Amino acid sequence: MSGHGKQEITDPVEEMLKKTGCINLHYVVQDCISETKDWRKCQDKVAEFRKCMQEYEEKKSKK
C-alpha cells in the first residue's frame, strides 16, 4: 500500500442519506444521543428525521 494521497472511506449509509437530503438531521440525532446518552430524550429530533425520510420516499415513489 503506497502513501500517496489519502483515500476517503465512505460509509454506504451516509452516502444513501446524502441522496435523501436528510443527512444533517441524521447528524442532529447522532449528536443528541451522544450528548444525552439516552435516545428517548431525542424523540423530537428522531421525528424530524423520520418525517424527512418519509417525504423523500414519497417523492421518490411519485417519479
Rank of each mutant, 00 (worst) to 15 (best):
M1K: 03
M1Q: 04
S2I: 10
S2L: 14
G5D: 08
G5H: 15
K6T: 10
K6D: 09
Q7R: 13
Q7E: 14
E8N: 07
I9T: 10
I9W: 15
I9R: 15
T10G: 01
P12W: 05
P12N: 11
P12D: 07
P12G: 05
V13Y: 04
V13N: 05
V13L: 15
E14K: 11
E15D: 15
M16K: 08
L17N: 03
L17K: 07
K18Q: 14
K18S: 12
K19H: 08
T20P: 07
T20H: 03
G21Y: 11
C22H: 03
C22N: 04
N24K: 12
N24T: 06
N24G: 03
H26Q: 13
H26N: 13
V28Y: 00
V28F: 00
V28S: 00
V29Y: 00
V29S: 00
Q30C: 01
Q30T: 01
D31G: 12
D31K: 09
C32T: 12
C32R: 01
I33H: 00
S34A: 12
E35G: 06
E35N: 08
T36E: 02
D38G: 02
D38E: 10
D38T: 04
D38Y: 14
D38V: 06
W39P: 10
Q43F: 01
Q43R: 04
Q43S: 13
K45P: 00
K45Y: 02
K45M: 08
K45T: 01
V46W: 06
A47H: 05
A47S: 07
F49C: 04
F49P: 01
F49T: 01
F49M: 14
F49G: 04
R50W: 04
R50V: 02
C52P: 04
M53K: 02
Q54E: 12
Q54R: 14
E55K: 04
E57R: 13
E57W: 10
E58T: 13
K60S: 14
K60W: 08
S61Q: 15
K62A: 08
K62Y: 01
K62L: 13
